[in-house]
Design a protein around this nucleic acid. Structure first.
Length: 467
DNA sequence: TAGCTCGTTGGACAA
DNA sequence: TTTGTCCAACGAGCT
């Protein structure tokens, strides 16, 4: 039988994988991962984490009697090469929805079809594909809550079981993953970060099970507390498709029906992820331009000022901000409340452009997702799809008092000024570049910007913005 | 169509 | 210490 090429992208899983199931039905399967310019363009931490995802998925395929073929180059050229080498007449993949992937995939599909290749794409990265959700007047949702109300009662197909994969008689040649150097840009931080990631389908399933079993029933409260292990931490796995959103969704609803009502908030968070992709699909400019009109002239700083540098390096002198920035540098993730605080601080107190923050997060987050990252930053900055009043400026001091009363979170991540700093706080100094010239013995810095002054400056600018 | 209601996550200040 | 109120205004989404 002629083999089928399954083009692997952000779907490192065997279960609930529609493209893989379709491929298995059609013949022997050649799973193929391509390191193309989209992958090459990832930030340091996402690229490293992607490489680990590839490695673990290759192992899983091997255990299932298959392989993962690795090739580097332009996606279409590689696919054409492998089609030619193997005699495959079918190429399948699971759809992505960010503008760059869509543009690539649309072109690849059309060209392969012109070549006479049967190219097919499938759903799976989202539960609700953007064109299947409409307002009653036929538009797309620009506000979350109405979309949530629209989709919350919808049927989501039950996850597909992992299929039996048959191998082709001959395998095409494959690159060695190590030769790609996907983790190279991480430099010193790599070894530290590596201890915090949780890679692969089996790990993701365990994580989901543990969350539903032990933590989801207190999710509403605990998810707001950065020093409490109250969240699912599944964003890292969802972004690489090591678990499908539908799998999480169904686990959430089972919990709701078992009386764990907080699980509905978890399902809601899954829909936030969908919402971000809907916006990226319908308004692709959300990725790199102000989503709302009239913000292009807003006087945000766009330079790497000393204050911006202090923000990146976790030495603004504001404990909540610094703790969160260090958490991200060390672990590749940041608690959601931290994300709101540091984003509000950068865009409002420091009056600096959200794209600076977006780019830094893109370099540091192992759960980096193009749609969620853009939406989150624009929401914080005020230029995004939300009607947040302009005067809503998070106060990182009162926030810390409210959500980290015991001071645990700050202590976990800030070593300076502590007699016996925690291991986590010290690990930051193993991860950061030496040229940052920071030491746990330093004095903790004074605030780089007076909070009251920063707030007033931001309020003035927001109040007086011109359209 | 016009009108109505509402908007993930807050802060400051007065009583 | 806690609670209530105001901070403005606009556009989304629905009826």
């Amino acid at each position: 039988m002629t083999p089928v090429i399954y083009w692997v992208r952000r779907d490192f899983r065997l279960s609930d994988n529609a493209a893989l199931v379709a491929a298995c039905k059609a013949g022997p399967v050649i799973p193929l991962f391509i390191c193309d310019d989209i992958v090459e363009g990832h930030g340091a931490a996402p690229k490293f984490r992607l490489g680990e995802g590839v490695r673990v998925f290759a192992d899983a395929l091997k255990a299932a009697g298959s392989r993962l073929v690795l090739r580097r180059g332009d996606a279409l050229s590689v696919l054409r090469d492998v089609v030619r080498e193997t005699g495959a007449v079918t190429v399948v993949w699971n759809r992505l929805y960010d503008p760059a992937s869509k543009a690539r995939d649309t072109f690849v599909k059309a060209t392969l079809k012109d070549d006479g290749v049967d190219a097919q794409s499938f759903a799976g990265h989202l539960m609700f594909e953007p064109w299947t959700v409409e307002t009653k007047t036929g538009g797309f949702y620009k506000v979350f809550t109405p979309m949530w109300k629209m989709v919350r009662g919808r049927d989501v197909a039950q996850p597909l079981p992992a299929p039996k994969i048959s191998a082709p008689q001959d395998w095409p040649v494959s690159d060695n993953l190590g030769d790609w150097g996907l983790g190279d840009a991480m430099r010193r931080g790599r070894d530290v970060l590596a201890t915090h990631i949780c890679v692969g389908e089996a790990a993701a399933q365990d994580r989901l099970g543990d969350f539903i079993e032990n933590r989801v029933h207190r999710y509403d409260t605990n998810r707001d507390l950065p020093s409490v292990d109250g969240t699912s931490r599944l964003s890292e796995n969802l972004t690489y498709g090591e678990i499908s959103p539908a799998t999480c969704w169904h686990a959430g609803w089972v919990a709701i029906h078992a009386g764990k009502s907080d699980a509905e908030t978890f399902c809601k968070e899954l829909v936030w992820r969908e919402f971000a992709y809907h916006l990226a699909h319908h308004t692709p400019h959300i990725i790199d331009s102000n989503w709302k009109d009239g913000w292009d002239n807003f006087p945000w700083n766009t330079e790497d000022t000393p204050e911006v540098l202090a923000w990146k390096q976790g030495r603004t002198g504001i404990p909540f901000v610094d703790a969160a920035m260090r958490e991200m540098y060390v672990t590749g993730t940041m608690h959601n409340r931290g994300r709101m605080i540091v984003a509000s601080y950068l865009t409002k107190h420091l009056m600096s452009h959200w794209k600076i923050g977006q780019a830094w997060f893109e370099d540091c987050l192992t759960d980096w997702d193009p749609a969620s990252n853009a939406m989150g930053w624009q929401w914080s900055a005020g230029s995004g799809p939300d009607a947040t009043p302009y005067f809503r400026v998070f106060n990182p001091v009162t926030q810390l008092d409210k959500f980290d009363r015991s001071g645990n979170y700050a202590r976990t991540w800030i070593a300076e000024g502590q007699g016996t700093p925690s291991d986590t706080a010290l690990s930051y100094f193993d991860a950061i570049p030496k040229r940052w010239n920071m030491s746990p013995q330093d004095r903790y810095p004074q605030p780089v910007v007076d909070l009251a002054h920063g707030r007033e400056r931001a309020l003035d600018a927001y109040k007086n913005r011109t359209f």
